[in-house]
Write a protein that binds this DNA or RNA. Sequence first.
DNA 1: ACCTGAACACCGTTCAAGT
DNA 2: ACCTGAACACCGTTCAAGT
Lengths: 208, 208
Amino acid sequence: MTSSDYHRQNLRGTLLELAEQTVRTVGVEALSLRQLARDAGVSHAAPARHFRDRRALLDALALAGFERLGASIDAAAAGEGPFAVRFRDAAHAYVGFAVENAELLGLMFTIKHEEGASAELVETARRGIESIVALLARGQGEGEVAPGDPERLAQVVFATVHGVALLVTGGLLDGTTASDLTDSAVDVLLRALPVPSGEGARAALAEG
Amino acid sequence: MTSSDYHRQNLRGTLLELAEQTVRTVGVEALSLRQLARDAGVSHAAPARHFRDRRALLDALALAGFERLGASIDAAAAGEGPFAVRFRDAAHAYVGFAVENAELLGLMFTIKHEEGASAELVETARRGIESIVALLARGQGEGEVAPGDPERLAQVVFATVHGVALLVTGGLLDGTTASDLTDSAVDVLLRALPVPSGEGARAALAEG
DNA sequence: ACCTGAACACCGTTCAAGT
DNA sequence: ACCTGAACACCGTTCAAGT
């Protein structure tokens, strides 16, 4: 059984796997449907059966990326420890994903501000922010986060962590490690988020 | 005198102008050297005289973008007002640039983490962070910012503002305006940056 | 010095035809 | 249903030749 026989059972999945490898190794720009078809051992016209065009394949790749990233953040944020620890873990999960999937992250966040981006893709991306909203709302419930619109706070938090991820993948760090910068950003946020009187978050930060 | 006669005196500049318009209207992906040559009224091989390849043209475009962005931030940060006002103005300058040049910003920050990015481009991008370092160091000198490595603080600040810019251009805002989110992010940073005892920054924030 | 025209090796996309 | 092969209209890049 040759690999092309094997793949023929599930060409769509095979193309996605090959595409992710290609994105990882040579970048999005260099990804070609014809080369993918050659790698999969099918004709150059075969991919069109599974993806309407090149963008549809990239959308599917980005969607899978958002799902993996979301699961990783949720796992970190839904822990049992103190708020500050969960918060820090979630940030590290995000930046860790960015480091390991730099090209994919770039694809995920450039694809949606094009005309006619799939609604499913935008929806999945938005759900990532909602995970942070939930984390912050839970922090407010525990008295660790100052009251206020958790959605707005979540946007700022998301922006900060995403910005850290991009600085990292963009190679603008100049000696600082990704993990150190993430901790610095979390420190700044933890200094700003808690209610002024509450010391709980700060204590947890010292332990975590 | 036809436009091609005019342009022939400065084809490089003409191509850059046309390229920026193209990026703005149809996006980076859709930019083709051959179409650019047609728009400029020259043969498809002419651009090669001025740009070694497609990427060299995009690099030049990104470089011009970083220079404009840097000038805009510097103008805001070098003002005479209180620290918090200069800080807020610089953040708004950054996000404003992002809103008006969304596609260009994306190009600016994707191009450098490719192999063989021009050193000049990386250097110009880095200078943007240095502007923020200088602003924060000046804030420390005025007692408005807690002591500590200003470079590290600047990276966090830059990450936050850049993240806000990307949330905005990425269309993940959902009703919040770019300016409002920028203010929220600045509020968070101004709550975290000042020395705990100093009230100067908070007072300036209330005025600004 | 600067540009042209032809050439080469690629693309994405479509579509009749095959199984 | 799924894939193939040919065809079309594009690309980027190179290079001898022109002015």
